[in-house]
Amino acid sequence: MKDVKPRVKVPSEAKAGEVFTIKTLISHPMISGQGKDKDGKPIPRDIINHFSCDFEGQNVIAIELDPAISANPYIEFTAKVDKSGTFKFTWKDDDGSTYTDEKSIKVG
């Protein structure tokens, strides 16, 4: 059983137009599809294949992830916004699941 849990780190406040760092991590085994089980049968691929971050309807970053991404995918990137609002984070799993998280920021 996968125990998938997303985590995000966004500063609570920023100045309008200031560039700041966002960090994200999601617990996920990222099964590459290259491995084999004890009986020599291939273990089917199961990865987080897509990540996106949006802010009030506008995109910050969208990422296509491949099996070469390590277990518990870690992604760090930068953003800049000119008003207060909420970041939405979305991870898509090969098994059809979608995991989301949200974080608000105050822009003064």
Binding site: Q58, A62, I63, E64, E76
Partner: peptide
């Protein structure tokens, strides 16, 4: 040299703070 050579494709949107990103990969 990986079994599948693609690692990740980053697309930067209008609110990106600059075209930069970090992650961790398998080699």
């Amino acid at each position: 040299e990986n079994p599948t050579p693609k690692v990740a494709t980053f697309s930067f949107g209008p609110l990106s703070g600059g075209a930069s990103a970090s992650t961790r990969m398998r080699l």
